[in-house]
Amino acid sequence: MATAIALLLLCSPIITLCYVGWCLASPWGTCRRCRPGGKKRTCRACEGTGKRPRVGWQLYVYLRRLHRDGTR
C-alpha cells in the first residue's frame, strides 16, 4: 500500500505534465456525446462540430478568467 502511494506520488507530476503538454499540443478533443454515430448536427455540447475543448483546457481557461477578473 505504502509503495503504491509512493509510486503514485512519484508519477502524478509526470502524468500531470504529460497531460498539460497534450492539452497544449491539441486543445480540441472529440465530442463524447455524439461519438457513437459520428458527428451529429444537433449535438448541443459541441454545437454540431464534433469537437470539444479538453477538460484540462477548459479548466485552464476558467482559472485564467478567474484570475483576470479577480485582479482587475
Partner: peptide, 12 residues
C-alpha cells in the same frame, strides 16, 4: 462586481 470577482479568486 469587482469585489465578487476578487472574492471568487481569493477564497480558493
Amino acid at each position: 462586481r469587482q469585489r465578487d470577482a476578487r472574492v471568487r479568486l481569493r477564497v480558493p
